[in-house]
């Protein structure tokens, strides 16, 4: 049953899966980019990024570009490791 154990509950949602996928292949992504790619509402996306931040899978940086506030997300080492494990587990489950 060890494969099932590797399925990470934190990634068990389409939006969270999407956020992690985008951040795995990009150095960083800002809120607007994630919103456009995932087709999520502001509130929905904010709650999912918060959840992933709490697990310390992603890093949130708030900064100003000119006068506009800008939130940038990037994946942490832990997040990368856990997400890879999650994908491996998914693939094994399909392969069965």
């Amino acid at each position: 049953m060890s494969i099932i154990n590797n399925i990470n509950k934190a990634f068990d949602h389409r939006i969270r899966l999407g956020i992690m996928s985008v951040l795995m292949v990009n150095d960083y992504a800002d809120f607007k980019m994630l919103k456009e790619l995932l087709g999520a509402t502001d509130g929905n996306l904010a709650s999912h990024t918060k959840a992933l931040e709490k697990e310390e899978y992603i890093l949130v940086e708030k900064q100003f570009i000119g006068r506009k506030p800008n939130t940038r997300y990037s994946v942490t080492k832990l997040g990368k490791l856990q997400f890879k494990r999650h994908i491996d587990a998914l693939e094994k489950l399909i392969g069965k």
Binding site: R14, L17, G18, M20, S21, V22, M24, V25, N26, A29, M33, L37, L38, I87, L90, E91, L93, I94, K96
Partner: peptide
Amino acid sequence: SNKYLDDISEIKNMMSRS
């Protein structure tokens, strides 16, 4: 297993689209 398959294709799709 269908849900897992959807998950994998969603991951691939997001990675290439982004």
